[in-house]
Amino acid sequence: MSESTTLDETATGTDATAQHSPEPPDDGHAHGATDGQYIVIALILAVITAAEVSLSYMDVGPIFIPALLVMMAVKFVIVVSYFMHLKFDNRIFSFLFYSGLLLALGVYVLALATFEFFA
């Protein structure tokens, strides 16, 4: 939760609720991917899912679970960065979401460790 000092910004608004202030350019829509690129990203995701499923039918020994987890993480990051625009948006959004995600990961892995789940 450490607030990095770079968050404080150039607050320009002279008046918190000025009347009829011009609509500030909403940052979300200026760039990001075109529709074509979204379709390509979706196909990549579909391919990874297919890979995961086929991997589970093959017997690849000990690297099976790590491979699955890596592919899951890749799909996760792709959807979050591109479909949810986190890659192009302000860093505060990434901070809010990833702090929640990593906290959940850390706390629950530690809890399962005390159950000797990974032993």
Partner: peptide, 25 residues
């Protein structure tokens, strides 16, 4: 308010911010 950076916020507001982050998670 304009000009109030995070390090110029009163400490009560800082502690409330930390408390709310604890609550939200």
């Amino acid at each position: 308010a304009p000009g109030m950076s995070l390090m110029r916020m009163p400490v009560f507001t800082w502690m409330i911010l930390v408390t709310q982050f604890l609550l939200v998670f």
